[in-house]
């Protein structure tokens, strides 16, 4: 929050309403927050399925990040090239698609494991599955 505050306070040269116009940084913030929410879910929930969903949240945060940067690079292509930085902006969406593919695969296999586990142990609570304990 302090960061957001600083951001608003520091842009003294812009009209007030302009200061709220979202930029890359806003997307990154959103992405981070989504990421953190997902991490909190992964770390604190007991239901495996919800943990999986939290992982999907994390992956989406990453996707958002990638697409936002891709868009940024696409728009600022010429500026960046002038600075000697040549980046293929399309790799963002492409990589996003791969992440979606991996997420789908992960969901399929992970949920298969959940079903197998449920069939054997009659539970989906993660802290009841602690056979790896010493």
């Amino acid at each position: 929050m302090s960061s957001l505050l600083a951001f608003l306070l520091l842009q003294q040269d812009q009209p007030f309403i302009k200061r709220f116009e979202p930029t890359l940084v806003h997307f990154l913030m959103l992405s981070f927050l989504l990421f953190v929410v997902g991490v909190a879910g992964v770390l604190s929930r007991r239901n495996i399925i919800i943990i999986f969903m939290s992982i999907e949240l994390i992956l989406n945060a990453v996707n958002l990040n990638l697409v936002a940067f891709s868009r940024y690079f696409q728009i600022n292509q010429e500026v960046l090239r002038a600075k000697g930085l040549v980046i293929d902006s399309l790799m963002g969406p492409v990589f996003t698609i791969f992440i979606i593919v991996v997420a789908a695969a992960e969901a399929a296999v992970g949920l298969g494991i959940v079903i197998a586990m449920f069939r054997n142990r009659e539970t989906v609570a993660i802290d009841e599955i602690d056979m790896l304990k010493w």
């Binding site: 929050m1 302090s2 960061s3 957001l4 940084v25 990154l28 913030m29 981070f32 927050l33 953190v36 929410v37 991490v39 909190a40 770390l43 604190s44 929930r45 007991r46 239901n47 993660i126 802290d127």
Partner: peptide
């Protein structure tokens, strides 16, 4: 609904969020 480490987890997540903001 939550494991025993819920509050530590939320704390760590919150710290992480703050640190990300500072990192940016």
């Amino acid at each position: 609904l939550y494991t025993r480490q819920m509050w530590p987890a939320v704390t760590v997540a919150f710290l992480l969020a703050i640190s990300f903001f500072f990192a940016m």
